[in-house]
Design a protein around this nucleic acid. Sequence first.
DNA 1: CAATTCTAGTTGACCGGTCAACCGCCCCGG
DNA 2: CCGGGGCGGTTGACCGGTCAACTAGAATTG
Lengths: 179, 179
Amino acid sequence: MNVTAPALEGTALEAWRSYLQSHAAIVRELDADLHHAHAMTTRDYEVLLYLAQAEERRMAMSVLSERTMLTRSGITRLIDGLVAEGLVERVSCPKDARISYAQLTDSGHAKLVSAGVTHVAGIERLFLTHFSPEELDQLAQLLGRLPGALPETGGCTAAAEACAVSGPAGADGTCSVSE
Amino acid sequence: MNVTAPALEGTALEAWRSYLQSHAAIVRELDADLHHAHAMTTRDYEVLLYLAQAEERRMAMSVLSERTMLTRSGITRLIDGLVAEGLVERVSCPKDARISYAQLTDSGHAKLVSAGVTHVAGIERLFLTHFSPEELDQLAQLLGRLPGALPETGGCTAAAEACAVSGPAGADGTCSVSE
DNA sequence: CAATTCTAGTTGACCGGTCAACCGCCCCGG
DNA sequence: CCGGGGCGGTTGACCGGTCAACTAGAATTG
């Protein structure tokens, strides 16, 4: 008996396996870096970055939950943590009393900035340095076809777009955070 | 203030972001498939596959924990679950009473086989179909350089090697399970 | 052989996340 | 204007995993 579809033999699988394994290893390491250097989770970093990029540095919980691909309760709890550390505040919306915003504090912003340095360095070291610029283009072009990847914005104009931080689940942006 | 290292602008990031996002989306979907069709976790699938490929269809807990990149306690609990479902049995080692093996039962094997069909189909659908054979080679070649990926076995001989199922954390093999 | 030390596995406490139930508030139709 | 339904957010119960402490059995050494 054989579980393998006939098509799945030889090198096709190698791409898949490298894809999986490298991802696991890289993400693990990035997490460890961030945790070690800033006592912070990749998730934390991600939402801090989202907030920093947002209008007024605040976002409604549910918007945040969509972006991060966490459930609403998940985001509630994550923000609870950030609030406890003073990196974020909850502010309520005058227009709609149901909404509560998570707003980046100054200390949250500062922490994001310093964490960003190590995080970006990690991406550089673990991913980018392994390829030439042409190869990175190639990769972007190939991986862009996969489900979930942005459909390869051929010459996207605004930094805003290019910056749109990571995406579903455990992504991490690497964008400018201006001030 | 700017978090981004100067080098990290433009398209370089696109490769990284597609890499992250596609992985999240694909893995999520694969998980959902497996869960929906077989009420089983990708982790479960992974260890069942390891067991199926192992000598005598059994492995010591700690070996299993290395392979799956779970902690020993994690593997204990995971196996607890599989035992409860009757997919695996614990058998003790006559030579060394400290060791206990997890051994695949017939029903576990059957379940693996049927789950394998849907899982492999998922990989096909979500990953492989997006590329031509040449592109898959390219990808394998590029991704193979990343940390954690096997170093591109140029013409690896044995199926055994090619089959060495996924790797660290949440990998999933796609190999033959013969009997 | 006894004492030490190392290894395999399990267990308890906890953590980060989900799911489902819930509360409070908006909004829309009588 | 008020009653019901839908939406935003939080909360409780649980789950899958880690870490640290522990137990039992090997191995090593004097």
